[in-house]
Design a protein around this nucleic acid. Sequence first.
DNA 1: CGAGGGACCTGGTTGC
DNA 2: TGCAACCAGGTCCCTC
Length: 270
Amino acid sequence: MPELPEVETTRRGLEPHLIQQTIKQIIIRKSHLRWPIPKEIQLAEKQIITKIWRRGKYLIIAVPTGNLLLHLGMSGCLRILPAETPVNKHDHVDIVLQNATCIRFTDPRRFGALLWLEQDPLQHKLLKNLGPEPLTEDFTAEYLFQKTRTKKRAIKEVIMDSQIVVGVGNIYAAEALFIAGIHPLRPANEITLINYKKLHLAIKEILAYAVKRGGTTIRDFLSSDGKPGYFKQELKVYGRQGDPCVKCAKPLKQIRQQNRATVFCSTCQK
DNA sequence: CGAGGGACCTGGTTGC
DNA sequence: TGCAACCAGGTCCCTC
């Protein structure tokens, strides 16, 4: 379940291994991911990788005539391995490089995606309506406040909406609301600018901290089963339903929103 | 346009 | 013990 920090950690881990490398071959073992992998993907073969960047949780690997667009979905991961490494059940794609390594895309639940884009990726329908990156200056408390004036939806749903802001998944949404002291069911249009300032800060802090910590696991990223993990022991509410709140010691509650678990403290979050 | 819910998928856990 | 039911979760897409 990669959230933005894991995707960014993956990007940083891959970057030095693939910049200026030539793609020798793209091996598709399972083309049916979230969407079928288009056969045009092979057009990337024999080309030099010039760049790997990220927009939201999408990764874009650029070659001169187009771009590979990757999403890790819920359970995907990308690793650099020797090209001859034996494959396991869920190793769906290898992007083999001329230097005898490969980028292996593994994804048990197959919610991930791999597409070929010849247009400007930012104009593609999957990317063009995305909200600001949470760690840039485009994302401000005033933006959140202004953007939510007509939204009666619960605040947790709103901050997880990628058209509002990208990269806030279920885990960090719950954590940020706890840090900000805001109840996850509060209608977004009822939240004051003061509270949006707290929430905005909490989102930035938690994501920046996780990216920073993710950076320390890049070593694992290169191992055969290395996946950057969550710092579960540092999560204050996610996965802790029934356990004592770290602030007031009362048991944390769990509800469901959009068919997803939300854990919160009914005393500390109003 | 906003809101809500279905769909996609498999491994692990729980319950009978 | 074996099998079924359920849960986890990102995000697109369809309907109202």
